[in-house]
Computed example of a mutant assay.
Amino acid sequence: MTEESLQAFIQKYKDIIDKRLPELIDSLETPPNLKESMIYSLNAGGKRIRPLLMLAVLKAYDSLFDDAYDIACAAEMVHTYSLIHDDLPAMDDDDVRRGKPTNHKVFGEAIAILAGDALFTRSIEIMASETNSLSPEVKIRLISEFVKASGPEGMVGGQAADLNGEGKSLSLEELEYIHHHKTGDLLTYSIVAGAIMANAPEQDIEKLRSFAKALGLVFQIKDDILDVEGDASLIGKPVGSDDDKDKSTYPSLLTLEGAKKKLAYHAQEAKETLSKVSGNMALLNELTDYIVERDH
C-alpha cells in the first residue's frame, strides 16, 4: 500500500467516525449539559487509532459493513471516557487536552465524571443494540472482550497501577504492565473485535491479539518519546508533563536512545506476528509504521 492510499484510508474513515460520534450522543434524551460535555470531548479531535484499526481488520478480510462504524465509535467512546477521567484533579490534574481545556475545566468535575460514565455505558448499549445486524453470539463475544479490556483487568487496572507508580522508580516489567493494560488492552480489543466481526479463523484472531499486544507497547513508547522531544503545538499538551508528574517512562528508564531502540524492537515484533496472519494485512502493516512515525 502506498503512502498516499494509507492517508486516503485514514482521512476517509476518520471523517466517517468524526461525523458519526456526536450523532450517537445527540439523539439521547438526557440533560443538556451532560450531552454537551460528552460531545465536547468526542469532538476535541484525536487520531481515532482504535476505530481505524478495527475497520482496517474488517477491510483485511473484505468484511466491512455499515454497522461496524457504530461498533468502532463505541471503542472511541471508551477511550474518550478514559481521557476525561484521566485529566481530573484526582488523577493527572491536566488543564489542556488536544489543545483545548479539559472537560472538567469547562463543565466542572461532577459533570465530567458523569460524562465519562455515560460514554462507557452508551458504548455497551451500542454493541448490544437490537438494531445492529450482528448475531447474538457475536454481540456477547464482543461485549465480553470489551468489558474485560476496559475493566479492572484491563484499562482501569492499568490506570490504577499508573497512579500507584507515581513518584516511584518502576522496573521495566512494572512499566510494561501499566502500558499493556492502560493503553494496550483497548487497542487489542479494537483489533480482535474487527477479526471477530469478520468471522476470521480462530488462529488468526489469536495471532492478531499477539500483534495488538506488541502494537500497544509501540503506541505507548512513542507517546513517551513525544513527551520528551515532541512539538507541544502538535501534541496538544505541554511537553515534559510525565517528568513534571515524576512518572517512570521508557526514556527515563532506558534513556531516549534506548527507548527508540525498544520502539523499533516492538514494531518489528508486531510486524513479524502480523506476517503470520492470513488475509491482506498490508493496511495494518502500514498503520504500524504510521504509529511509529507519527508526530502527535
Rank of each mutant, 00 (worst) to 15 (best):
L134Y: 12
E36Q: 12
G157Y: 03
A161L: 10
V218T: 08
S150Q: 07
E174P: 02
I178C: 08
Y290G: 14
N33H: 15
D94P: 07
K59T: 14
E29W: 01
K105Q: 14
M91W: 01
T188K: 14
H85L: 04
A72Y: 01
A267I: 06
A267W: 12
T273N: 15
A267R: 09
K14R: 14
Y13R: 08
V192M: 14
E272F: 05
A44E: 08
A90K: 04
G279A: 08
D244E: 15
A8S: 11
A68T: 04
A56D: 12
A60W: 06
K168E: 06
E174I: 09
A282W: 00
N164T: 02
I126N: 00
P51Y: 03
L24T: 04
T121H: 03
H179K: 08
K261T: 12
G108V: 10
N33A: 15
L254E: 12
V292L: 11
E4P: 02
G167S: 13
T273G: 14
K59H: 13
K139E: 12
I124P: 01
L88E: 06
D231K: 06
E293A: 13
G258K: 10
T255W: 02
V239Y: 07
H296V: 00
V156P: 01
T255S: 15
K148S: 14
T131S: 13
D66F: 06
A267M: 02
N43G: 09
N285V: 05
E202H: 13
L186E: 11
C73F: 04
S144G: 15
M54C: 13
T255E: 01
I191C: 02
E293D: 14
E173G: 04
S169F: 09
Q220A: 08
A68C: 08
H104M: 07
I111N: 14
K168P: 02
K168T: 09
A212S: 15
I71F: 15
P152W: 02
T80V: 04
A75I: 11
E130S: 10
D246G: 04
A128H: 05
I16S: 00
T2Q: 10
S41D: 07
S129T: 05
F120G: 01
T249C: 04
L163K: 09
L170V: 00
G216N: 03
F219E: 08
P22L: 03
D231C: 01
K213N: 06
Y250A: 05
T273R: 13
V57S: 10
D244H: 14
L263Y: 13
Y265M: 14
G158K: 04
L254S: 11
N164E: 15
G184T: 11
E206K: 11
P89W: 03
I221G: 06
H179R: 08
H85I: 11
V239T: 05
V156Q: 01
M127S: 00
I225T: 09
A264C: 02
S135L: 10
